[in-house]
């Protein structure tokens, strides 16, 4: 699809929108449907779309696979790290209450952080799987 102008233009218009929507879903999950996982899938899908239209190599320039691999690990570490931090602060594993001044605030911070971890991991896993499959075609 590299050489078709129409999809390229449409993609240029749409992809930022999709990513924006993904971010909305990510951070609005506390109030409406959605959360890290869905957001991750959406952002991942946006990047895959980019790859499909502009080619694997272009996508790899934007998101080198080494960085993506590290991001997979980073998201997961972020989640588990929140748990460790709460432990260090003297509470049980993943007991977010201690992260803030009040229980509610702590919970809020905790949930946002772990959801972010979920989103990062999911999005980057999607992309890396795409890399692996697409890289096999030849």
């Amino acid at each position: 699809m590299k050489h078709h102008i129409v999809p390229r233009v449409i993609a240029k218009l749409f992809i930022p929108g999709i990513i924006l929507f993904g971010l909305y879903v990510q951070f609005h999950g506390d109030y409406g449907p959605g959360g890290g996982f869905q957001a991750g899938v959406i952002i991942g899908a946006a990047m895959i779309l980019y790859g499909l239209i502009y080619g694997l190599n272009d996508l790899k320039k934007v998101a080198p696979s080494n960085i993506i691999i590290s991001l997979i690990a980073f998201g997961f570490l972020l989640y588990a790290g929140v748990g460790i931090v709460t432990q260090i602060l003297g509470a049980n594993f993943l007991e977010y209450g201690v992260l803030g001044h009040t229980q509610k605030e702590g919970q809020h911070i905790g949930i946002i952080l772990v959801e972010l971890g979920v989103g990062i991991t999911v999005a980057s896993v999607m992309v890396i799987i795409f890399y692996m499959f697409a890289g096999r075609k030849n």
Binding site: G29, D30, Y31, G32, P33, G35, F37, G75, F76, Y79, A80, G83, F93, L94, Y96, Q103, K104, Q107, H108, G110, I111, V114, E115, G117, V118, T121, V122
Partner: peptide
Amino acid sequence: HTGMPNIVTAVLASYRGYDTLGEV
């Protein structure tokens, strides 16, 4: 407990946050 209206998110990320860690 959490100040969130979306119960599913709250249960997912806090009450059963450990399941979600497993999911990740």
